[in-house]
Structures are given as structure tokens and as C-alpha cells.
């Protein structure tokens, strides 16, 4: 049943841009929402972009690569840099990654992340999903986000950044040559 649901969702995800994104290697998605002082950033990417494979790790090298990638995703500071002046402090970090030894049960998860998992399924695709919640003392200073993750994970060649801030909503594509996402509405 679950597979069927995912199949259905993947089938339409080309249209539904911020539902489960189309599983397209080389492409990842970052969603940024700001309200008052609280800032939410969601990251979603096919596992292949991060480690170069999409199955349960088979070798020690792959296991290590997976652990390293997970560790990096767990550290928001290494993935995207927020302006110093905004004084944002990470309050909550949530990583949902398939095939991980430390992968917690489905039950402990917010069910919003259910499509992030396809544990143990060697033939299919696998996505990594992460959510970071920040508290920003000076949210007005949040004028742009440096997309470090494009440097950290060269497998991501295109990053779609959706944002919803008091200044408006936007949806733009970024690549390694353009790794600074403005949070002001550009006409």
C-alpha cells in the first residue's frame, strides 16, 4: 500500500512542486519559512546526490560515506550560512535518512516525513529529508542564505529554493556557480 502511495505521488510530483519532489538525481530542494523570530529550513535530496549510491551500504567505504553525510546534514551550519547579524540559533534538528544504523523507528517520527523513507528497499530510490528550526534574534537581517551545501555535496547540481518570508514568497533555482539565495523578493 505504501509503495502504491509513493508511486502515485512520484507520478505527479513533476506538477506538485513542493509535495514530495520528483526524485531526480542531481536535484535537491530547500524550503525556507520565516515567521516572526522562528525560521524553519527543510532540506530534501535523493541519497545519490550525497553519497553516490542509493541502496543499503554494502562496503565499509559506503557505510562510512553514509555516516559522514548524515553527520554533515545534522550540522546545519555546514550546509547553509545565515547572516551573522540575524543571530540565529538552531533549536531543533531532525534528519530522516534511509539505511542508517541509527535510523529510528517509523513511530518516533513526525509522519510528515513518511515519504522520506524507503528503508531496506534496494531496488528503488531513497531520499534524505532534514528539518532545522532556528530562533533568530534579529530576523530583519535575514536577507540571504549562503548555500554551502552546493559546495559540500557536489552531487547536487541544481537546488530549488522555495521561501516564504514576510517579504514574500519565492521559488528559484541555484547551482554551484550561484550559491547565494536572496530572501528578498526580486521582481
Amino acid at each position: 500500500m505504501r509503495n502504491k502511495v509513493i508511486g502515485l505521488l512520484l507520478g505527479v510530483s513533476g506538477v506538485v512542486h513542493a509535495g514530495p519532489p520528483a526524485h531526480e538525481h542531481g536535484v535537491a530542494e530547500l524550503r525556507i519559512a520565516l515567521d516572526g523570530r522562528s525560521l524553519l529550513v527543510e532540506f530534501e535530496s535523493p541519497l545519490d546526490n550525497l553519497v553516490g549510491f542509493e541502496h543499503a551500504p554494502r562496503t565499509i567505504g559506503q557505510r562510512k560515506a553514509l555516516q559522514e553525510a548524515e553527520a554533515r546534514i545534522g550540522e546545519p551550519a555546514g550546509l547553509f550560512r545565515l547572516p551573522q547579524a540575524a543571530a540565529c540559533v538552531a533549536r531543533e534538528v531532525e534528519v530522516a535518512s534511509p539505511f542508517s544504523d541509527a535510523d529510528p523507528d517509523e513511530g518516533t517520527h513526525d509522519h510528515e516525513h513518511r515519504y522520506g523513507h524507503r528503508e531496506g528497499d534496494d531496488s528503488g530510490h531513497a531520499d534524505v529529508h532534514a528539518a532545522y528550526r532556528f530562533e533568530c534574534a534579529n530576523p530583519d537581517a535575514l536577507d540571504a542564505v549562503e548555500l554551502e551545501l552546493l559546495r559540500v555535496f557536489p552531487g547536487i547540481r541544481s537546488l530549488r529554493v522555495h521561501s516564504a518570508t514576510p517579504r514574500g514568497q519565492s521559488s528559484l533555482r541555484f547551482g554551484p556557480d550561484r550559491a547565494r539565495a536572496p530572501l528578498r523578493v526580486a521582481l
Binding site: V12, A33, L40, H162
Partner: peptide, 25 residues
């Protein structure tokens, strides 16, 4: 506003009917 993406997912994954939620901007 921080709930915008989770509500969007809620609508896009709606069980009874194929629905679509978009961020207009």
C-alpha cells in the same frame, strides 16, 4: 508562516481527493 510547507504537504497528500496547494508568490 513556518507551517506553510507542512500544510502544503498535507493538502498535496490529501487522501480523499487529488488536490494541489501552491505558494502563490
Amino acid at each position: 508562516r513556518t507551517a506553510v510547507f507542512s500544510v502544503q504537504r498535507h493538502v498535496n497528500d490529501f487522501r480523499d481527493e487529488p488536490l494541489l496547494a501552491i505558494l502563490p508568490g
